[in-house]
Design a protein around this nucleic acid. Structure first.
Length: 482
RNA sequence: CGGGGCGUAGCGCAGUUCGGUUAGCGCGCUUGGUUCGGGACCAAGAGGUCGGAGGUUCAAAUCCUCUCGCCCCGACCA
C-alpha cells in the first residue's frame, strides 16, 4: 500500500479538498481540459467516448418511447426569444448574442440557443394544423451556450452538450403523461441502470421550476461531498408557449385548440455526476455500461516469454472484442505496475493480466476496479466470467451509491438541527414545508439549502413547517446543490 | 458580479519579502542500453518571451499600474 500512497500525490485526496480532487480527476484522466476560451472546455477523446456511450443508452430509450431525432438552428432571432415573457426573463442574463455577420451589422440580433423552446415552437406553429398532426415527439442532441459567470468543468460551462426533447400534445393529460414517462421510464431508468446513480424524483417548487413551465419534474442525485446535483428535468409547459407562439389545431370536435407541450433535458453535466458519485482517491470508477474501456488487458512481458504472452493476449482480445469494449496495453516503455495504476485512475472496471505463469496454467488474472479483488480465471470460463463480473460491478456501484444516499437522507423537524446538519454533514433533509415562498427563501438564505423537490411519495401524516411551524402535510427534500 | 488565493519547462514546485552575471529542482519527454506479476535503473540530451501589456530602473520572475485565466467562498444557473 505504500506505493498507493505515493500514487495518490497526482490527485488531491477527496478528504483534503473535494473541489480540487474533482478537477484533478477530470484532467489527469483526460476526460477534459481547459481551453483558451473562458468557461469553455474541450472534451477529450476519453471523455467523449464516455459521452458517446451515455448518449447511446439514453438515445435508445428516447427512441423506444416513440421520439425521433431532428436538428434545429443554433441561432434564435431576438423577437422569437421574447415571445414568452417568463421564459425570456429567466434566460436573459445568460444569453450570448450575435450582432454581426461578416462585416455587416445584423438588423435583428441572434441569440445563440440557451435552450430551444422558442425556435422549435415557431416551427411547431407551422407544422400543426389538425389533431391528426399530434403528438409531435422530437428530440435533439446539440450544444447550448449560457453565459455563466462562474464555470466548472462539466458541471457548469459556457458551452455544453445536451439532449432536449420537445413534444406537443392534444390535451393536458397526454402532456402530463409524457412529462412523467420521460422522467421515470426514460431518465430514471437510464440514470439508475446505466450510470448506476440512484436518484430522488419529484416536482420542483414554483421558485425552482423552469422559466415558462407549468411545472417541472426533476431527478436529484447526491454527490459524495453531500451536495446534490440536478441530473435531469422534465417540464410540463402547459399551453404557455402554445399561446405565445400560436400553436393551434382543429380538434375532432371542430374546435380550434392550443396544443399542450413538454420539454426535457439532460446534459454533459452527468459526466461530472459520474465522477463525483463513483470516483475515489485513485481516480475514476466507471460503471461498465458506459465505460469507454470495460476491460483492459495488461500483458506481463519478460524477454523469454514475450512472444507467447503477446500472442495469447491477442487471442484473448479477439474473443472478448465480440461482446465487450476491450483494449490491450502492450506499451513497452511502461512497467505493468505503472499500467495498473494508470488504468485504475481511468476507472476501467476490469483488468485482465496475462503473464507466463498464467500461460502455464491456461488462466488469466482479473482485478476489479470497484473492490480491488483479484482472482484467477480459467481461459474456458473467460467470456462468462467477464460478463458476470461486469454486471456485478455495475450492480455494486449502484448499491454503494444507493446506501450512501439512504444514509444521508435525514428526517428533521427542528430548524436548529436542520442548520447544524446542513453545516456539517449536508446530504438531504426530509421535512415538512408549508408551501410558502417566504419560508423557502428564508431557509435558502440562512442555510444555503434549497428545496430540491417535492417527492411523489407523500405520507399520510402531517407535521409542522420546518421554518414557520405552520401545520403542513407536504414533505420536501432540502439540500445544498451544485 | 463581490471577497480571498494562485499563475515560473508538459506536470508539481523553489526563487519574489530586500531588483544584480547564463532562472533552478523533482517528475515527465527524447536517444541508447539493461528491465518488466503493483508507478524499474544507468548514461547522454532537448525543453522557458517567468500568464499578457505598459511603466519605474544602468538592470525586473522580483517594484508599480492595468489586464487575462484558473481555484475557493458568496449572488445566479443544467
Amino acid at each position: 500500500m505504500e506505493k498507493d500512497i505515493e500514487f495518490v500525490k497526482e490527485i488531491t485526496s477527496k478528504e483534503k479538498d473535494f473541489s480540487q480532487w474533482y478537477v484533478d480527476v477530470v484532467r489527469k484522466t483526460e476526460l477534459a481540459d481547459y481551453t483558451t476560451i473562458k468557461g469553455c472546455m474541450v472534451i477529450r477523446p476519453y471523455g467523449y467516448g464516455l459521452w458517446e456511450n451515455m448518449q447511446a443508452g439514453l438515445d435508445r430509450r428516447i427512441k423506444e418511447t416513440g421520439h425521433k431525432n431532428a436538428y434545429f438552428p443554433l441561432f434564435i432571432p431576438e423577437s422569437l426569444l421574447k415571445k414568452e415573457a417568463e421564459h425570456v426573463e429567466g434566460f436573459a442574463p445568460e444569453v450570448a448574442w450575435v450582432t454581426e455577420g461578416g462585416s455587416q451589422k445584423l438588423e435583428e440580433r441572434l441569440a445563440i440557443r440557451p435552450t430551444s423552446e422558442a425556435i422549435i415552437c415557431s416551427l411547431y406553429s407551422k407544422w400543426v394544423r389538425s389533431w391528426r398532426d399530434l403528438p409531435i415527439l422530437i428530440n435533439q442532441w446539440v450544444n447550448i451556450v449560457r453565459w455563466e459567470k462562474v464555470t466548472r468543468l462539466f458541471l457548469r460551462t459556457t458551452e455544453f452538450l445536451w439532449q432536449e426533447g420537445h413534444t406537443a400534445h392534444k390535451n393536458e393529460q397526454e402532456a402530463e403523461e409524457e412529462t412523467l414517462k420521460i422522467l421515470n421510464q426514460v431518465y430514471r431508468d437510464y440514470i439508475e441502470n446505466d450510470l448506476a446513480i440512484p436518484v430522488i424524483v419529484g416536482r420542483k417548487t414554483e421558485k425552482e421550476k423552469f422559466a415558462g413551465a407549468l411545472h417541472t419534474y426533476t431527478l436529484e442525485a447526491l454527490m459524495t461531498d453531500g451536495k446534490v446535483l440536478q441530473a435531469g428535468t422534465s417540464h410540463n409547459l402547459g399551453q404557455n408557449f402554445a399561446k405565445a407562439f400560436n400553436i393551434k389545431y382543429l380538434d375532432e370536435d371542430q374546435q380550434e385548440k392550443y396544443v399542450w407541450q413538454t420539454s426535457w433535458g439532460t446534459t454533459t453535466r452527468l459526466i461530472g455526476a459520474l465522477v463525483m458519485v463513483h470516483g475515489d482517491d485513485r481516480g475514476l470508477n466507471l460503471p461498465p455500461k458506459v465505460a469507454p474501456v470495460q476491460v483492459i488487458i495488461i500483458p506481463i512481458m519478460f524477454d523469454k516469454t514475450k512472444k507467447e504472452v503477446r500472442n495469447k493476449a491477442e487471442d484473448i482480445i479477439t474473443i472478448l472484442k465480440k461482446d465487450f469494449r476491450v483494449e490491450i496495453d502492450s506499451r513497452d516503455e511502461y512497467t505493468p505496475g505503472w499500467k495498473f495504476n494508470e488504468w485504475e485512475m481511468k476507472g476501467v472496471p476490469l483488468r485482465l493480466e496475462i503473464g507466463p505463469k498464467d500461460l502455464a496454467k491456461s488462466q488469466v488474472m482479473m482485478v476489479r476496479r470497484d473492490t480491488g479483488e483479484k482472482m484467477a480465471v480459467k481461459e474456458e470460463k473467460l467470456v462468462e466470467t467477464v460478463e458476470k463480473l461486469l454486471n456485478n460491478i455495475q450492480e455494486n456501484l449502484f448499491n454503494k451509491a444507493k446506501s450512501f444516499l439512504q444514509k444521508n437522507i435525514r428526517e428533521v423537524s427542528d430548524y436548529n438541527k436542520f442548520k447544524e446538519i446542513m453545516e456539517k454533514k449536508r446530504g438531504l433533509i426530509k421535512t415538512y414545508w408549508c408551501g410558502n415562498k417566504d419560508c423557502e427563501d428564508k431557509i435558502k438564505e440562512e442555510t444555503k439549502a434549497s428545496i430540491r423537490c417535492i417527492p411523489f411519495e407523500q405520507e399520510e401524516a402531517s407535521g409542522k413547517c420546518i421554518c414557520c411551524g405552520k401545520e403542513s402535510s407536504t414533505v420536501v427534500y432540502f439540500a445544498r446543490a451544485y
